[in-house]
């Protein structure tokens, strides 16, 4: 992977993206500049945009990298030389995830650089830690999904297309779910305060539970919620009343949920890959 041109192209692109984020900050109006508080916000927004862009980058990178092995026949050679199929699959998965994590760490280092100048005060360390941990976990889960697609679709072009279409469909459906939930909670607040609200926008109890569950399970929903992670973890109750420890436990639960998704996706991938004919 590290010798491939592809990896370096993506590395450079993501570095350029991060530098642009910082540059954008430098162009902010003068009264905001030089303040660590404001850079804290920029840092958090940069993390959020990074994961949003990364899921598309991962779709392209994974499917191009793995499908090249399909096209060159390297995967068949590995199987012939006695490696079990499960370990061939796992190696690809580990390589792709580690690449994603390395790219993330490099970019994290770059966007942290301005802290040397502005100082770290004004930033809530715990929130940032939670955000970084969740992003790292999401990178692994998302890689697991794309490796599944790329290992099962031998054609290079098709695997790129399916990966990108899949992630777009996931993001759109996450957006729709989020929209439904937002309308619901907004109308509920209006109803409680006795103002006018639209009855059709309030969801039934079971319906609401299903949407909420999907909101927590789908990785793309978590991607969207890296922005307001604390509210998301606390289920939109008042954060100031909830101790940090409890939020950390919620985060651990979310990571566990991601781990289950990861295991399910990988198990499905290995099972199908075992039965697949390699040309």
């Amino acid at each position: 992977m590290f010798r491939s041109k592809l990896f370096w192209i993506f590395m450079i692109l993501s570095v350029v993206f991060c530098v642009y984020n910082i540059y954008d900050d430098a162009n902010m109006p003068a009264e905001f500049r030089q303040s660590g508080q404001i850079y804290g916000y920029v840092f958090e927004a940069a993390l959020y945009f990074y994961i949003l862009v990364y899921i598309f980058a991962a779709a392209v990178l994974d499917s191009l990298f793995i499908s090249r092995e399909h096209a060159d026949g390297t995967i068949r050679n590995k199987v012939i030389s006695g490696h079990p199929r499960a370990s061939v699959y796992m190696t690809e998965l580990i390589v792709c995830s580690v690449t994603g994590l390395i790219m993330f760490i490099v970019n994290l280092a770059i966007i942290s650089l301005p802290f040397l100048k502005f100082g770290i005060h004004g930033m809530d360390g715990w929130v940032t830690m939670r955000r970084i941990i969740l992003i790292a976990v999401l990178i692994i889960v998302i890689n697991a999904m794309f490796v599944l697609f790329s290992m099962l679709i031998p054609s290079r072009a098709s695997s790129v297309v399916w990966s990108i279409v899949f992630i777009i469909i996931m993001l759109v459906s996450s957006g729709l779910i989020q929209d439904k939930l937002d309308n619901d909670s907004h109308s509920r607040i209006l109803r409680e305060s006795g103002e006018y609200y639209e009855h059709s926008k309030i969801l039934g109890d079971t319906e609401r539970k299903v949407y909420k569950a999907l909101n927590y399970i789908l990785p793309t929903n978590q991607v969207i919620h890296t922005y307001d992670i604390d509210d998301f973890l606390a289920d939109y109750k008042d954060i100031s009343e909830i101790p940090q420890k409890k939020l950390n436990i919620y985060l651990a639960g979310l990571c566990l949920l991601d781990a289950v998704t990861f295991v399910l996706v990988t198990a499905a991938g290995i099972t199908i890959f075992r039965k697949k004919d390699l040309k």
Binding site: F56, L64, S67, R156, A157, V160, V161
Partner: peptide, 11 residues
């Protein structure tokens, strides 16, 4: 090339 074209066009 089909692969590069599809990647570039979709992006």
């Amino acid at each position: 090339s089909r692969t590069i074209a599809v990647t570039v066009c979709m992006i």
